[in-house]
Amino acid sequence: MRVLIRMLNLVRLPATVTTVPPFQGGLDGVFVADRVQDGMTEAGGAEISPQTAWMIAVRDRRDRAAFARLFDYYAPRLKSVTLRSGTPAAEAEDIVQDVMLAVWHKASQYDPARADVSGWIYRIARNRQIDLARRKARPEPEDLMLDASHAPEADQIVAMAQEAGELRRALGQLAPEQKRLIEKAYLGDMSHVEIREDTGLPLGTIKSRIRLGLERLRYELKELRKT
């Protein structure tokens, strides 16, 4: 609950966030962080994306209006990605539905200090698709158990959001050929073809950020176990 109070103090959910700007197709629309500037949310003088703010509102306050906004933003994208990866059209909306319900039910596991909200939702979607395709639960890494008392600092959340924003900008500046590689790797059909090539993207800084979050979490969990 400390998170809730802290976030309510720091995160002003602006009325403008209902309008997510129209999207151009393909990776040309990667300047998301830039385009939704108007809807950016203030937190301690820095910015987190509206999607992050909605997700935190869903997690901490079970906010249905914020969830509806998440739906409006993610459902069309999830459907598009699901179709691209080879799922029959008839099943695509079922998957979108499952994924959005999972976002609601798993909200307590969302940690804005360690994960980008779009990446977190992407993971839920991929896992769901794979579970269905294999008719078997996909192996997932062990969860680091978040205790109710685990409250990431607001500055960590903002730092994570900034790193994710940087990554989007870097992605936006890639040559078309590199963009196609990224699309192929994450949005393409999930054939077992190992392309042993690097994405060539600067993932180092966001990795360091996540690692910092992990170290802090490990430390906090250790302290918790002592008490």
């Binding site: 393909g26 779009s118 992407y122 790797a185 949005l187």
Partner: peptide, 11 residues
């Protein structure tokens, strides 16, 4: 995952 999320945003 963050990169995949950015690609999802841009799709």
């Amino acid at each position: 995952e963050a990169l995949a999320g950015a690609a999802l945003d841009a799709s």
